[in-house]
Amino acid sequence: MTTVTSTLAEYRRRLATNRLGLWLFILSDSFVFGGLYVSRFYLLGTQGRPDVNQFVGFVVTSVLLVSSFFMNRAETAMAHGDRKTFLRGTLTTLILGAVFLLGVVGVEWQIAPFGPGDGTAASLFYTMTGFHAFHVLTGLIFLAVVYRNGRKGLYSPERHWAVEACAVYWHFIDVVWIFCCPALYLIGRPPI
């Protein structure tokens, strides 16, 4: 019993370090996106925003926000020992994340009346959405691993750091998009 208690105490100590490490990674990744935002706003002073479809922007943004809700639900469920809701929430997040990726790469990129080579604003649009899409893809892989491990019963209410890390990473992707969305779809005059 003493061994179990001390192991759990050790796990909690490591958890604090793990959290700090994850947040440091998130902070460093934010600087890369920060550079892209600065470029985007610099260009807004010299030219309008690219001719993007605001409706598609609204749909993909909504899908990502709802996916964050289900991720939070999944993590909360695991923290309280509700494995069924955890699995359902993780799977829903995975599906919504795939829909988001399809919406940006499969729809927005295809219907955009400009290509990556049509000026700096257009190039930056593809850079920002593409860089974010890669993060989404990474998050989907992470989610698939967590879902698989969850099905095998590898997590418990006391030990589920992987689930927490996956959730924090997924919400980070959401926060990045929260700033990408107005920068790319809303702010600045559309081309005439």
Partner: peptide, 9 residues
């Protein structure tokens, strides 16, 4: 972003 970071993250 504040709400997501406070309540979800």
């Amino acid at each position: 972003a504040f709400f997501v970071m406070r309540d979800y993250m």
